[in-house]
């Protein structure tokens, strides 16, 4: 083996990497919030809605969950402009990721909602709680606790999946890596470094989720 590793050129471009890292974090966090909102609303519609609403949500969930994210991205970024809807790369990335995560969240949250026994809701009613109180204390909170592990690992997978948006030239961490690669020709060094960065991010996210679980759910 005659190759000598040279990280110097790669580290010299740290500002690019930092910029990419910030967008990756922004995309991940905003998508998580939007995905959670879509998930809560969609799951409520799927469990408590009328038959038509249930069917529409089911079609949305199955369509998204049975097609690849990269094709969804391409459809929104390259496809929709011909229908008159034009987004810049970062916006298209955000839309595609949110739609994608929303579908997965609906499935997870729905399973959590359905795991609440009917008798719990009846117990709430017999205590004189209002429907809003029942929804908040009897349904949402306990089921969020149950689905939290599944939801948080889906969120970590989403953070890793944001790397795919580099393929529509959204300027995330992975895109910056390919820019540095084309400038320095240090392929191996760049991608190893970026893989390590994602690994650290994944660890930090897992830690943060464990912290949230500990402070919000475990104490009650």
């Amino acid at each position: 083996m005659t190759y000598s590793f040279q990280f110097r050129d790669v580290f010299a471009a740290w500002e690019f990497l930092l910029e990419g890292l910030v967008l990756t974090l922004e995309l991940s966090l905003v998508t998580m919030v939007v995905g959670l909102v879509i998930g809560l609303a969609g799951a409520a519609a799927r469990v408590y809605g009328g038959p038509w609403l249930k069917r529409i949500v089911a079609v949305y969930v199955e369509t998204i969950r049975n097609t690849p994210l990269i094709v969804q991205l391409f459809l929104i970024f390259f496809g929709l402009p011909s229908a008159g809807l034009k987004f810049d790369a970062n916006t298209a990335a955000l839309i595609a990721l949110s739609i994608n995560l929303g579908a997965y969240s609906i499935e997870i949250i729905r399973a959590g909602l359905e795991a609440i026994p009917r008798s719990q809701i009846e117990a709430g009613q017999s205590l004189g709680l209002s429907p809003v109180q029942i929804y908040r204390y009897v349904i949402i909170f306990p089921s969020l606790r149950m689905m939290f592990p599944a939801l948080s690992s889906q969120f970590v997978l989403l953070m890793l999946a944001t790397s795919v948006v580099s393929q529509i030239s959204a300027q995330d961490l992975f895109h910056m890596a390919s820019i540095i690669q084309s400038r320095t020709f240090r392929d191996f060094e760049v991608y190893i470094l970026v893989a390590a960065a994602y690994l650290i991010l994944a660890l930090l996210f897992r830690l943060a989720f464990a912290g949230i679980y500990h402070f919000v759910f475990a104490r009650r």
Binding site: L160, F174, D187, F188, L199, A202
Partner: peptide
């Protein structure tokens, strides 16, 4: 944990671009 904490895309690129430098 290492594999589930890194994007699949990174693995693809490391193998595709990375291994060629070892000849």
């Amino acid at each position: 944990h290492a594999v589930q904490g890194t994007p699949l895309l990174a693995w693809l690129f490391v193998f595709f671009f990375g291994l060629s430098i070892f000849g």
